[in-house]
């Protein structure tokens, strides 16, 4: 019995210490007062941190980050669906493994290197511009390919698409090939099968993937810093800037807002898509 208790206790303790404690600290400190004299915080309740969010265009960065996250998550899902469909239904075991490796291996390099490589690809003299000019589609190199929201989105989608793909693949395991055959047998064409069989059965996985990408994008900074245009920002860069001047309540207030928004999304999504189904027995 004590061994069983230990097995349960350890992970619970780890979650409490590593996860819940910092979050509680952050949330609590966001309501404390910043003392400019000592550059430290005093335990006196204050909403100054939250007030400062509304200054200096900080809330636009928050909204912009959320927008980037939602768009990137959507794009990742759009790419992940055909990819996982191919892996699950069309590939033999060897090709499936190859495709999985192809999307996993880029993770072996640092996000910095990956973002930097997009600079070379999307730059004025990069292969994309060279190709477009070769085809005669553009006369001069496109400037908006790099140091733009476009470049940031390319970098984000390329980095985080696997986080959408894996939960989707997990939920596709619930879709037996015979379901597709049965739907076709009853007269359904490809898109109707996608709409009436595949989408409803994979919704929990799609939502999980969507959340993963959203969370990763909100926490990301490299892509914006390496690929974004002048003045481009994102929450983590902004938090970093605020921390540099030691305004902890403001930094924590920003973090708390993000936390609340994400929690709300998870709860709403769980209600709508029943996320828990992802972990149920695929055979039923």
């Amino acid at each position: 019995m004590p061994r069983l208790l230990l097995i349960v206790l350890l992970p619970v303790l780890a979650v409490l210490v590593l996860g819940v404690a910092p979050l509680l600290t952050v949330t609590t400190w966001s309501f404390w007062t910043w003392d400019p004299a000592t550059y430290w915080i005093r335990p006196e309740p204050s909403l100054a941190g939250y007030g400062a969010i509304l200054e200096a265009g900080r809330w636009t960065v928050l909204a912009d980050t959320l927008g980037k996250g939602l768009l990137a998550a959507l794009l990742c899902l759009l790419l992940a669906y055909p990819l996982t469909y191919a892996i699950h239904f069309l590939s033999g075991p060897r090709l499936a493994l190859l495709l999985l490796a192809a999307i996993t291996i880029p993770f072996f390099t640092s996000s910095l290197i990956r973002a930097f490589s997009w600079r070379l690809v999307l730059g004025r003299t990069g292969p994309v511009n060279a190709f477009l000019q070769e085809l005669g589609l553009v006369a001069r190199p496109l400037d908006w390919l790099l140091f733009s929201d476009f470049a940031v989105m390319v970098g984000l989608v390329a980095s985080y698409m696997p986080f959408a793909a894996f939960p989707l693949l997990l939920s596709l395991r619930r879709v037996e090939p015979s379901y597709l055959a049965a739907a076709q047998d009853l007269g359904a064409g490809f898109w109707r099968i996608v709409r009436t069989i595949i989408l409803p059965l994979t919704l929990p996985g799609a939502f999980a993937g969507f959340l993963f990408v959203l969370v990763m994008v909100i926490g990301s900074s490299t892509e914006v810093q390496m690929l974004g245009g002048a003045g481009a920002s994102i929450v983590s860069v902004m938090v970093n800037d605020v921390m540099r001047v030691a305004n902890f309540p403001l930094a924590f207030a920003i973090s708390t807002v993000v936390l609340v928004v994400l929690l709300a999304l998870v709860l709403a999504g769980n209600r709508a898509f029943r996320l828990a189904r992802l972990f149920e027995d695929p055979s039923w």
């Binding site: 055959a181 049965a182 047998d185 359904a188 069989i197």
Partner: peptide
């Protein structure tokens, strides 16, 4: 002619009932 355009219907070996639909929804699918 692909399966969805043939006047033949199949009862599959594993039955392939759609798990997210009720009995009536399964039967009404076609």
């Amino acid at each position: 002619l692909p399966a969805n355009r043939r006047p033949a219907n199949t009862v599959f070996q594993d039955l392939a009932l759609f798990p997210h639909m009720s009995v009536a929804q399964n039967v009404a699918y076609g």
